[in-house]
């Protein structure tokens, strides 16, 4: 792609970051961080399956963005680029975590327990048993995602949790539209095998 994109919604903000001498999380870069922190963290969490690794991957994502933003030339959308960095950081971290001979103290807890604390509001509309059952289902689904291969995980998270279009996924993962389609087909096959028993167990099929 030779011509820089001019319809990128983040164009002005990224240009402001490039023009400004940021020494830390301030100014235009702070705005960029605020705009993307939820998306980046959730992407990292769903791919790594661990809050600890998600923190590390998210930090690495924003540190990379901070270091390289001066060289960003809008050959793709900024959002596609930062998703790409987040996916790669998460996959790399997950690979390193899997090969470590030691265990993080945080891993001793269930990944789902590290997430949003239970909201007391939930208790008023849902019985404690219902809330627990839902959390168990969410944990089982996350486990199923974690068992997918890195490529399947990435495309599943970007498409169905981050809501990216085929074109955006193609840009983020630097693959053709045809590859997006074929990879999604394979992902559905894998999801069918992983999720069908889970949903059957929870009587949701």
């Amino acid at each position: 792609m030779s011509q820089p994109l001019t319809d990128d919604p983040d164009l002005a903000l990224v240009r402001a970051c490039q023009a400004q001498e940021s020494v830390c999380l301030e100014g235009a870069f702070r705005e960029l961080y605020e705009a993307y922190k939820d998306r980046v963290y959730n992407t990292c969490y769903r791919i790594t399956g661990s809050a600890t690794d998600a923190m590390d991957a998210a930090q690495e994502t924003f540190a990379t963005a901070f270091r390289r933003i001066d060289g960003f030339r809008f050959e793709s959308r900024f959002s596609s680029w930062i998703y790409r960095v987040a996916v790669n950081a998460s996959i790399d971290l997950r690979r390193r975590s899997a090969s470590r001979p030691w265990v993080s103290l945080d891993r001793l807890r269930s990944p789902l327990n590290e997430g949003t604390p239970m909201d007391p509001e939930d208790e008023r509309v849902e019985s404690p048993g219902g809330a627990a059952s839902r959390r168990e289902l969410e944990g089982d689904i996350q486990e199923a995602i974690t068992r997918l291969s890195p490529k399947m995980k990435a495309i599943t998270v970007l498409r169905y949790m981050e809501g990216l279009s085929y074109e955006e996924i193609s840009e983020s993962l630097e693959i053709s539209l045809g590859t997006v389609k074929s990879r999604l087909s394979r992902a559905h096959g894998a999801l069918d095998r992983e999720l069908t028993p889970v949903l059957d167990r929870h009587l949701l099929n």
Partner: peptide, 23 residues
């Protein structure tokens, strides 16, 4: 059904420590 379950997973709040350590 599977896609609905995936899309229905909760959005997690970013821990405050991320900003601290990033700083």
């Amino acid at each position: 059904n599977q896609v609905a379950q995936l899309a229905g997973l909760p959005r997690l709040s970013v821990p405050y420590q991320l900003e601290e350590s990033l700083g």
